[in-house]
Amino acid sequence: MNEPKGDRRKFLARAGIATLGVGTASLFAGTAMSATTVRPSDVGVIQTALALEHEGIAAYRIAGKSGLLSPGTLKLALVFMGHHQAHRDSLAKLVATAGGKPAEPKTDSQYIAELKLGSLKSEADVVALATMLERGAASAYFGQITALKDPGLAKLFASISADEAIHWTTLNNAAGTPIPTAAYVFG
């Protein structure tokens, strides 16, 4: 299943093409959800998720400008960033619909410090960081589903979690790390 690390660029380039359709699906999921009414008790959960999306977008955007990524990897990073932007837009719209003020992104300098982006020296470093963030994001969405009161919102969170899981799987395989042998990878 796993390709040698030397084939990372080819793998990522192919994966970039294959994942384009997923972003469209997640965008539709978000659009459908935005038409429903958000319960006040769910707004806090959405705001936390929104903060997570802001962080993911910043990580891909800043890493994308770093010059560390090969063209194929950059292309994939931009696809993943697009997914996160679609998630952000869906979540922000839900908060606004509920009468709230969507959580704002931090500054780039904050993200650089918090994620230690200045310490990244190679494409492998970027892939390792993105892998860690995507795994955490998949688990965070999955883990917060039970806190949601609205089933439609729970469906949206499951859909986003699946997107993050695809990101993680793609990056994990590109890094040559074996898939965990135990089931229930995300908890």
């Binding site: 903060a51 997570l52 410090a113 918090e114 795994r135 955490g136 998949a138 688990s139 965070a140 995300f186």
Partner: peptide, 16 residues
């Protein structure tokens, strides 16, 4: 911790 908490937390820096 990395799997479950790493989406929002780090050991040495404030994040979400």
């Amino acid at each position: 911790y990395l799997n479950t908490c790493g989406g929002c937390h780090s050991v040495d820096t404030n994040r979400i």
